[in-house]
Each structure stands twice: as structure tokens, then as C-alpha cells.
Design a protein around this nucleic acid. Structure first.
Lengths: 199, 199, 199, 199
DNA sequence: CATGAATGAGTTTTCATTCAT
DNA sequence: AATGAATGAAAACTCATTCAT
């Protein structure tokens, strides 16, 4: 019996994690206001006071989830910015790779993604941060002259974020497209435009 | 009897319209849940029972605003789809023109736009409808072979919606870009891609 | 029927006043914490939301009562300080009169008195203010040399407040002594001491 | 067996005493309702179940403190009542001595004093008991005719309690006056009155 | 002797909504 | 066309208290 270790349910961390994950799901499905603390704890098989044992209040658990999303997302984008001065062919690959990474993260954390990217008051801020990251990554990685003169990099970055956002909701999360494929298609459109140049 | 003859529709319609426009602003600024009926009527200089004289409930006035947005938006996109079989140069103009029309509408109706495009539970649905419209418009207007083979029109349309959405929030509504200019830049990026082909 | 006037219960001021007076009684009997908003409204034949129609919260109605007490009390003590430079015999009368005024007010407002003098967090402050008023009144009214050299007026004033406080609870509010009589006895003790000088 | 022999009463009694003294301080500072069991145990470096190991509940620990105050106080006042039939000069001294004793006890036990004399629902009762004690002491100690005829001993005793109470809060506990000095001043005022008889 | 984990029972507060006039 | 007054229903949150170990 000695080797059995801790009894299930007697572990506070477990309860906390359970609440956190259920809350993520509730917030993702119903939004902040329509998610009741009572529903979260009910699904967890716990009671309301227990909730307040682990989280200061409803706002706090929500913010914790938002923060989780932000940190994960930005650790991803930070990793993407490496080795400046890169060749044409591999740049396209690099962007694809970066996008695929983001999409994979979104796919694996759909609740967190919905919360941080679509539900929170700072979703806007989050997207703007992402756009800035993207802009910086591109600017630092890419040789001058690689992109068309006319391109306003800021507009471009924001557009890319818009595309990510939209395709995440419409294609990725419903399971219609895989992260890699989605990334490739975006890069294809974006780098080359949609006009058939052979025409 | 002459003295009884109120100007028809005068006061009632006025109050209703007032409530509607204040509500639009409140919903746009604070979202559905954080907008209180009490604040709406206070700003209107009216009382709560009066609110219920004109609207069945809070949900109803919100939906009315959403509907207003939807109708305006889709009357715009419907108008855009005309005269199939179009020349290269003017197609680009046509798309630009269509986008500029949408942006102009957004710019003139920022509250409605925020509600219909960013706040409502059916914002998603709204964007999907818009994407479908765009897809249809392009498909019907454009000669086969005009676009690259590889392009998934659905992906393209959704992407365009994402770009519209994002640039509306970050550039248009803050007044950083004018509708026409924004439309041009999008078309430029999208049709030609971002790579400098002269390189 | 026209002359009947307002129907009972349709008057908000009436409800507010009712709540205020019931609250005073509840606070006086049970103290702040053991007084529930629910009991107040129940006794008033109203519901909880109505309470919040008239008072911001439980704390606010309590403070309003405290303030009511304070204002009444200090308008009394301010009135007492008149016509400086006064003769021996009438000074004693003056003090008696002032005390009797305070006691009368306490007797007529027992709930308010209990709240402001015995229950509130600022009861201490209130008593200190009263002591200061008393000290000032005496100092300003009385010729030098009238009081014994040795008397520390501050100690004296605080003592008087202590006596007022205690006799209010033990004699006045239970109805064992009338305001006038109580005032006389205090003055008698205080001015002359308790030792029989004829002995 | 030698190794099992904990020092008797060592840890348990220590924890109990610690809780008791912290509780006294918390109750004194914040009052009964605003003192939380959780804060007491936190300050003690213990947990809530431990609290219930030593005290039946929150009410019980509070009552224990009240009782502690009561017993100490009344053992003091009982000691004061000795040797009836006493001379003029030494009576005054005796009263001064008794008061000084009380003040000393208060000064050395400020938390207990605040609880027993100012916080508890039975603070009233406590003061009344004290007044009775004082009345009895005086009545039994003093020759007939020593006090003025007019003096109602009950009023006098209550007044004295009021003075003690007030000066304890305003002068003694803040450290503005020492027990002995305070006692002397009270006796001086009380026995002789405040009027300058030489005037 | 002590605790990690949990809860029963309440309390304040809010808000959309309605009744009677 | 409008309102003064009121409420039903629910939500977040708190705290003393206990169980199992």
C-alpha cells in the first residue's frame, strides 16, 4: 500500500487544474458572462467555496486562462524569429513553418484559443501584439528589396493576423483543415497573390 | 379636435429612434452584458417602462441593431455583384470599389459595425455570410483561369473577410486609413502578392 | 375622490423613510452585523431590490443614520454655547439645561442614539467631538477662576461625556430617570463634589 | 519509553495560549465580526482544524477572553472592599488606590480590556456589575453622613464607571496618563467638585 | 498534535422586467 | 406617451466549521 501514493481527490493541485480546464471550456463555449461559477464547480463535482479556495474570483480564473494563452502564443512567435538574412526559398518555408506552429497550438488548445483570441477584453491587444511580432519577425529576417516596395508592412502583418484569426475559426477549429496545409495555403496566396500570372 | 392633433409619429418615433441609437452606442462601447437598460434610458432622459413600450426586451433591441447591420451590409454586397464577364483591369477596380463601399459603410456606422461584426453571438455567422457572398461574387464575375489554379476560393474569401475585419478595427475605425486607400492596399497585396517580382 | 390625494404606498419618500426607521431600530437592537437587509425589508413589507432603490448598500443606510445622529447632536451642543460671561447661579442652570437638552434628544431618539453613540465605528470620534464641544462651551462661558485651579478641563469634559454615556444607557433609555432630573443630579455631583461639606 | 516522553503540556498548551492571545488582539482591533478564524490561525502559523482542537468555536474563544477579563477585574474590585469604618483622609486614598488598580490592570491588558469593556454584548453587563461592586464597596466602607444627602449612590457609581470607561479609552490606553495620576484626578474632581470654593 | 481539502448555509447585491396610474 | 414604484430570480462571494488522514 505504501507505494500507492496519494489518494485521488486529496490533491489540491488536481482540483485546481480540473477547475481551470473546465472553466476554460465553459468560457470558450458560453463566454465570460454566461459562464457561472456554479456551473464550473458543478461539472467538477465540487462546491462554490472550493472554487474560491483556488481562485480569487471569477475574473481571476479568466485572466489566468488569458495569460496562459498569451504566454504560450508569444513563446511560439519568439521562437520563430531566428537566423536573420535568409534565402528566398527557405523564407517561404520559414513563414509556413511559423504559421503551422501557431495553428498547431490553436488546434491543441481550442478553448484557450477561443478565450484569448475571441472572448477576452484584451483579445484586440493580443492580436495587435501578434501583428507587431509578425512585423518584427519579417522585417528582421528579410533582405531589403525582397518584398514589394509598395507593401506597408504593418498593413500586411495585420492582414495576416486577420487571416489567421478567421481561418482558425472557420477551418482549423472545426477540423476542416490541418495546421500545415492551412499554413501552406496562406503563404501561397500571400506571397504570390491570387492572380494567375500565366494568364 | 384640432387641439388634440399631435403631429403623427412625432414623439413616439423620436423616442424610439433615440433609444435605438443610444443603445447602439452603449452596446458598441461596453458589449451586450455590460450594457444596462437603465443606462440606456438614463442617457435618453426616459424611464425603464418607456423602453419596454418600444422594445420587447433587451435582447430584442440588440437583435434589431444586428439586423440593421446585416441588412445594410448585404444590400451593399448584393449591389457589388453585377455584370459578369469582366476585364482584367476593371476587375481589380471592381473589387477595390466593393471593398471601399464596405469600409465606407463601416466608417459611417461604427457602432453598428462593432455590434454586428464584433459583439454579437452571430458575428461569426455574419462573417461567414459575408465570405459566402464574396466567394459567390468572385466566382460569378470572374472568367475561369483568371485566378491561380491552386487557390481555394473559399479560403480566399474567408481570408479577405479576416483582413477586412482586422483592418477595420486597427486602421479604419481609429481613423488611420480612409476607406478607399484601405481597399486599394488590400487589393494590391491580394492580387499581386507581397513578393517583389523584379527581384 | 379628487381630494383623497396620493395613495398610500405609492410614495417613494414614504418607503424610504420607513426603511430608514426600521433600519435604525434593527441596528440599535442587533448591531450592524446581525442586522440583515432581508430583515429590514421584511419588516417594511418590501423586497430587497427596493432597499437598493433608496440606499446604495447596507453600509450607506447605516452611515446615513450615524450622520443624522451627529448632526442633531451637534446642532444641540452648538446652540448651548451662547452669551459668554455668566454668573455663578445661572451657569449651573445653563449646564443643567444643556445636559437636559442632550438627554431629551437621546430619549426621543433612542435608536439613533444607540447607533451613533454605542454601535458605530465612529462612536469614539463622536464622543471625542462632544467632549471637545463641551470643553469649548465651558471655557468660553466661564469666568477665569470660576473653576478650581487643579481641574484639567479636558479630563473634566471627557468625564462628563462618560457620565452622559453611562447614565443614558442605565437610567435614561430604560426610563428610570427623566432628562431634567438626570441633568440636575449630574450637575449637582459634579459642581459640588460628593462630600458632605457640613460634616 | 524515554524517547516518547514529550514535555507535558508543551506543544498543545503553547498553541492554545498562542491562539488565545492572537485572538485577543484581533478581537480588540477589529471586533468580533470582523475577526476571522482564518486570520487568527494564519497569524499563529497554524491551520483552522487546529483551532477547533482547542476551542469549540469562534464564540467560545471570545467568551473565554471575556471571562478572563471579568474574573481579573472582579478579583480586583473584591480585594478593594476591606476594613469598613474608615477615616476621611484614608478613604480618599482608598478610592484612589482602587481606581489605580483597575487602571493598571487595564493598561497591562489592553486587548482584554477592549474586548470585555467595549466589544462584547456583555460589556454593558460588565459595567453594570462593576457599578454595583463600586456601590457596594462605598456603601459598606463609608460612615453615614460622609456623603452629601442628595447623592444617589447608584447614580454616583454609574457615573464613576462612565468616567473610568471614557478616560481609559481617551487617556490611559493611548498612554497619555498613568494609572495613578488618572485615579488621583478623578478622585479629586469627584470628591470636591469642580467649583473653586475660594472664589 | 496537526493539516490538506472541502463544504453548508448564508448574505449582499444586481438587473431585466412589470404593475398601476 | 410616459412614469414612480416595485420585484423575481439569480449571481458572486464569504466564513465558520468538519472530514479523513
Amino acid at each position: 500500500m505504501g507505494q500507492r501514493g496519494r489518494k485521488k481527490g486529496s490533491n489540491g493541485e488536481q482540483s485546481r487544474a480540473l477547475l481551470l480546464s473546465i472553466a476554460a471550456n465553459e468560457f470558450a463555449e458560453n463566454g465570460y458572462h454566461d459562464t457561472k461559477v456554479s456551473s464550473i464547480v458543478k461539472r467538477a463535482g465540487l462546491t462554490q467555496p472550493t472554487f474560491y479556495l483556488y481562485f480569487q474570483n471569477k475574473e481571476a480564473i479568466f485572466q489566468e486562462l488569458v495569460e496562459l494563452f498569451r504566454e504560450n502564443l508569444f513563446s511560439l512567435t519568439r521562437k520563430s524569429r531566428l537566423e536573420p538574412g535568409i534565402e528566398l526559398s527557405s523564407l517561404s518555408d520559414r513563414i509556413t513553418y511559423g504559421l503551422a506552429g501557431i495553428f498547431s497550438f490553436f488546434k491543441e488548445n481550442p478553448d484557450l484559443t477561443k478565450i484569448g483570441f475571441y472572448e477576452s477584453a484584451i483579445a484586440e491587444e493580443m492580436k495587435r501584439e501578434l501583428a507587431i511580432q509578425i512585423e518584427e519577425n519579417l522585417t528582421s529576417e528579410v533582405q531589403n528589396g525582397y518584398f514589394s516596395q509598395a507593401i506597408d508592412m504593418c498593413i500586411f502583418a495585420e492582414s495576416l493576423v486577420g487571416i489567421i484569426e478567421r481561418l482558425t475559426v472557420t477551418k482549423l477549429l472545426p477540423g476542416l483543415k490541418q495546421p500545415n496545409r492551412l499554413a501552406e495555403e496562406i503563404v501561397d496566396i500571400f506571397l504570390n497573390g491570387i492572380i494567375n500570372k500565366n494568364n
